[in-house]
Write a protein that binds this DNA or RNA. Structure first.
Lengths: 107, 107
DNA sequence: GGACGACATGTCGGACACTGACATATGGAG
DNA sequence: CTCCATATGTCAGTGTCCGACATGTCGTCC
């Protein structure tokens, strides 16, 4: 029922979780790394997005056995993975269109 | 000085203008067409975006000789075209990363 | 000539996401 | 013991998008 498209911050959070379950701060660092340092999420953006994604059932809390630190680990749900895939498919289509339009206009 | 990324509505407006100069309503119809009917801009979104893009120097008004109808035709500036190209390059990079991450997680 | 729908531009309030600043607390290194 | 990285969270401000409303023209059909 939720409509795409995703914002870049949220997309990067999901891509980070697509690789493996992570906790918030780990997502923060991973996003910075995979974006080549270009995207540095503020904690407000991150934790707000996590709450929203939880509410929509795209991600879920992972239960931990014993970790000394106060970490909250999240993982993609199958629903979240499906939605992420369709979102990426949409992006690919849009990117292809964009490349065509730009190329055509340069001739 | 303006930072990317662009929202999907604005990106589609720019792609529409990348092909040829258009007036507002024409952009509206073109965006609907190139997005396969998926994106239907509200006029609030469209005219707001056009004002912003004018202010940032990404697009400019085209002077008309004589058209009966009250049309305001816009075209991309060279600055706008450069920025659009770098934005599309960014999207391609992000899309590539996304495909990799998703593919890897499916194995 | 009158009605109606497509064309054409615009404003405005509400909803919502992103940002930056602030707050708090723990772990490890020196 | 001090400092920094780790770790999570809130909040006010800002900007964008959307839907509704407003206004007017042009062409066509009856």
């Amino acid at each position: 029922m939720e409509q795409l498209p995703l914002s870049e911050p949220v997309l990067l959070v999901l891509l980070s979780l697509a690789e493996q379950p992570r906790h918030g701060y780990s997502i923060l660092k991973d996003v910075e790394q995979i974006s080549g340092g270009r995207v540095v999420l503020s904690t407000g953006t991150l934790y707000g997005a996590l709450q929203r994604l939880l509410g929509q059932g795209w991600i879920e809390r992972q239960v931990e056995n014993e970790s000394s630190r106060d970490r909250r680990v999240y993982r993609l749900t199958s629903r979240g993975r499906r939605n992420l895939q369709s979102e990426v498919a949409r992006m690919e289509q849009l990117t292809k269109l964009a490349s065509l339009r730009i190329a055509r206009s340069e001739v």
